[in-house]
Design a protein around this nucleic acid. Structure first.
Length: 649
DNA sequence: TTAGGGTTAG
């Protein structure tokens, strides 16, 4: 007889009160333990119903020591308690323990219910234990659960995850009352084993029967890059679950729409939903793209900090956010805290250090990675080679490339060749870079040719540049950037007519240059500036700060480097044009709107201009401020009149 | 009077 069947019992009201307490969530394990002590005090600590609620809540804090204590203090556990134990262990990723708990339950003579199997089958699927799966399946049949849609869906998922799609299909076909969840399981299974045609056929069939969840279709549109269509569907959805929100946020972030991703993230919070791991990764990757450190830190604070140590995917997203915001000290703290560092975690740290110009540290972390026995992969070497490129370390780059190919037998991808071409081109070894492109086992893409073109510009090789440009135009005739770079080369060599011809060609083909744009985050708000922008509410203050700086800069010996201007116009006009490049506007805004000890962090959508680079170096000296500019290629940390890139970029 | 399967990430 349960406590709630007898309202006249003196414990009834107290038990009801405690039951209500369990309906609310607990902020800490301490609060939960307090309720547990109340149960003991009033003599209800053997009341299985209440103990079950306590056990369930205890898993929220991932403290297996305490959950076991609660379970083992029960004199006569019932099947509900056993099920909660198995379910809880699965929920905190302790799959082997969950299976062991199920085995104990059987040993103790308890017969599993329809609720037991989905939990234990999930543990089995996560461990990819096909043999155990077969045993469990036979128990399902023996105990008469072969018509239960929940149990069968778990079996479908288990077989599919283990790669036995035929068995999964057999179970699926026999489900009498298929629903949206069981259909999702089979489509995912088909995609997982690469049976995409079958997956699409199934998708179509189920669409007709209205058995495809909206979150699935949403993800489909997002993965195809069609965020407008995804948004339409999302807005039409009545009940939006956490998966739909996360899918949308992630979709925006991975389709280059970080502002929309963060807007939706805020929206989700306004709807009273707590972000899950997926939404968090989406939000962090949006912040990383925008270089929005404050926003990224705020977002991460919405989740228990331990989660970032436990879940390496979350940890990596946070490392990446800090790295892309130029805050490697914090990125390193996160890196150190991650308990089970997989290869991706190590790679993120190495790439972060490399892109921030901490090259010896990147090499050292690589050394540690090897010491811990984590085998590097191609991505590890992309990070290392990028580091070599930023520091101009040609010999080291060649060595890493050789280690990768000759010692580790890793096949270089086009990205590795791209890094090597970049490294050689920047160092002025243009012929060698060109030869490398010709010897590549695959066709060079626009990125590889683009690196060589950048080298041609840096080392004033107009002849090779013309050749490269022809290749680039073939590969991507729509890309205005190629024309602009050639025009830059001609302008810098004072070949104004040639420059004009290229620009006319652009005009004829109806192309316009991607406009320079910079962002700066102040008090959690991202401010955007275009070249010559006067739209900002504080525009007057920004321009007056710039003219004030101009005087100080000239007094400090700064001469505008007019060769960075594209057009053949008068020097005075060129200077004016340079004076309002987006990165300078963002820096000036940072100077007037942040405290004197704050670091100014700017992100630019193109490479930082050479003149701005010189000017910002001096601005950092004159104002005594640390200024970090992230461009499409690397970080420039300006301090005391110098830049971390040592003028090599 | 208790609870369940699938989908979204670095």
């Amino acid at each position: 007889m349960g406590i709630f069947t007898n309202p006249s019992s003196p414990s009834f009201t107290r038990a009801l009160h405690i039951k209500d307490r369990f309906l609310q969530s607990f902020d800490s394990l301490k609060q939960l333990k307090h309720v547990h002590s109340q149960l003991i005090r009033i003599g209800l600590d053997q009341e299985n119903y209440l103990l079950n609620l306590l056990l369930r809540s205890s898993f929220d804090f991932k403290d297996t020591h305490y959950t076991r204590l609660v379970f083992h203090q029960t004199h006569e556990p019932n099947v509900f308690l056993w099920n909660t134990m198995v379910r809880g262990l699965v929920s905190i990723d302790c799959f082997k323990d969950a299976i062991a708990s199920y085995a104990s339950m059987r040993r103790e003579g308890f017969s599993p219910t329809g609720f037991t199997f989905p939990f234990v089958l999930k543990a089995c699927a996560r461990l990819l234990d096909f043999r155990l799966g077969l045993k469990l399946h036979s128990q399902v049949v023996k105990l008469g659960f072969s018509c239960d849609v929940f149990v069968n869906t778990s079996l479908v998922s288990l077989y599919a995850k283990c790669g036995y799609i035929e068995d999964a299909l057999k179970v699926f076909d026999d489900i009498p009352n298929k629903n949206v969840v069981s259909c999702t399981a089979i489509i995912t299974g088909l995609i997982g084993v690469g049976k995409c045609r079958e997956a699409i056929d199934m998708f179509r069939k189920l669409l007709e029967m209205d058995l495809v969840p909206d979150s699935f279709t949403l993800d489909f549109h997002a993965k195809c890059g069609n965020m407008e269509r995804a948004r339409l569907l999302f807005d039409e959805m009545g009940e939006k679950d956490i998966v739909s929100w996360s899918t949308m946020i992630q979709g925006y972030a991975s389709n280059g729409l970080p502002k929309q991703a963060l807007e939706l993230f805020h929206n989700m919070l306004d709807h009273g939903l707590k972000p899950d791991c997926y939404a968090m990764v989406g939000a962090l990757s949006a912040c990383a793209r925008l270089g929005a450190l404050e926003l990224g830190e705020w977002a991460s604070s919405l989740m228990n900090i331990d989660e970032f140590s436990i879940n390496p995917v979350l940890g990596t997203a946070l490392i990446d956010m800090y790295a892309k915001c130029g805050s490697m000290t914090k990125a390193y703290d996160v890196f150190k805290g991650i308990r089970a560092k997989d290869r991706v975690v190590w790679n993120a740290e190495i790439s972060g250090l490399a892109m921030n110009g901490h090259i010896p540290a990147a090499f050292a972390v690589f050394g540690q990675m090897q010491k811990y026995g984590i085998p590097p992969d191609g991505n590890t070497f992309v990070g290392l080679l990028c580091g070599c490129t930023h520091a101009g370390l040609v010999n080291e780059g060649r060595q890493y490339f050789n280690i990768m190919v000759r010692i580790l037998s890793l096949a270089p991808t086009i990205e590795h060749y791209g890094c090597m071409v970049d490294l050689l081109s920047r160092a002025g070894l243009l012929d060698e870079a060109h030869q490398l492109i010709k010897s590549m086992p695959m066709e060079a893409n626009a990125v590889v040719w683009g690196s060589l073109l950048g080298g041609c510009r840096l080392h004033r090789d107009t002849q090779l540049a013309e050749h490269v440009l022809k290749k680039l135009v073939e590969l991507e005739p729509w890309n205005a950037g190629n024309y602009v770079q050639l025009s830059n080369i001609y302008s810098a060599s004072h070949k104004w007519d040639d420059a004009e011809n290229v620009r006319s060609l652009m005009g004829e083909r109806g192309m316009t240059k991607l406009r320079g744009c910079s962002w700066i985050e102040v008090c959690g708000i991202v401010h955007e500036f275009l070249v010559g922008d006067t739209s900002h509410p504080l525009s007057e203050g920004i321009y007056s700060k710039l003219s004030e700086l101009d005087k100080d800069l000239r007094a400090a010996g700064y001469v505008p480097t007019t060769e960075y201007v594209l057009f053949d116009i008068e020097d005075e006009e060129k200077e004016h044009f340079l004076g309002c490049h987006s990165e300078k506007l963002a820096v000036a805004f940072g100077l007037i709107s942040t405290g004197p000890a704050e670091v100014i962090r700017v992100v630019k959508n193109l490479r930082v201009c050479g003149d701005c680079h010189e000017a910002i170096k001096l601005i950092s000296k004159i104002t005594g401020r640390e200024i970090i500019v992230r461009d499409t290629n690397r970080f420039h940390c300006f301090s005391g009149g110098t830049c971390s890139c040592k003028d090599y970029w």
